[in-house]
Amino acid sequence: MSTGALRRPETAGGLRVGVLALQGDVREHVAMLGALGCTVDEVRGPADLAGVAGIVLPGGESTTLSMLLGSAELVEPLRERLRAGMPALGTCAGMILLATEVLDGRSDQQVLGAIDLGVRRNAFGRQLDSFEADLAVAGLDGAPMHAVFIRAPVVERVGVGVDVLASVDLAGASRPVVCRSGTVTVASFHPEVSGDPRLHEIFLRDVAAVSATRTAYQHA
């Protein structure tokens, strides 16, 4: 964690969110969300989804994760919750899983289709092309994000209603690497590895807003 003390959003207290915990850098996301003040459940099966008001899909190997989502019978329950408006944050492999379309993926790769993007895997190349860089992200206060890209994907097609918050240059073309649509936020890189909490804070604000709306509706 490089950014020092995490600012605790006023809204995070009492929120309960999940991190998909089948494979990947689960621990970093759990640590960051815990430091931001919420209760974190590790999600390995459909029953684990019941109590959570938002879901984080971590970095990892997207082909492995999509297979494990299938065998854990999580694909349909997750799609259903996402369709019903559950906020989500996906980093790297998590971004691939949340997209509607995977370019260059395996034909049987499960996608959750929560944000209308066409995503290309390993877009920068192999591990030798993995890199760190400072990145300006629209709508974030303060310094640029220090972004760690590891065998990272990029967005090649942006659907209707999707906001592009940051892009990088790749072979002369500008490619989106942070996108947002409704309450779904995705990044090609790993803020959980560099320790920058600002995308997680956006996610938690979405969770708080959705939870507040639900509560108001139930009491009306």
Partner: peptide, 22 residues
């Protein structure tokens, strides 16, 4: 020239972090 740094310790260890649980 684009300010991208490759071959760092964080990037090297980072791939190992992503393989966890696999």
């Amino acid at each position: 020239e684009q300010g991208r740094t490759t071959g760092t310790l964080r990037v090297k260890r980072g791939l190992a972090e992503m393989l966890r649980g696999g």
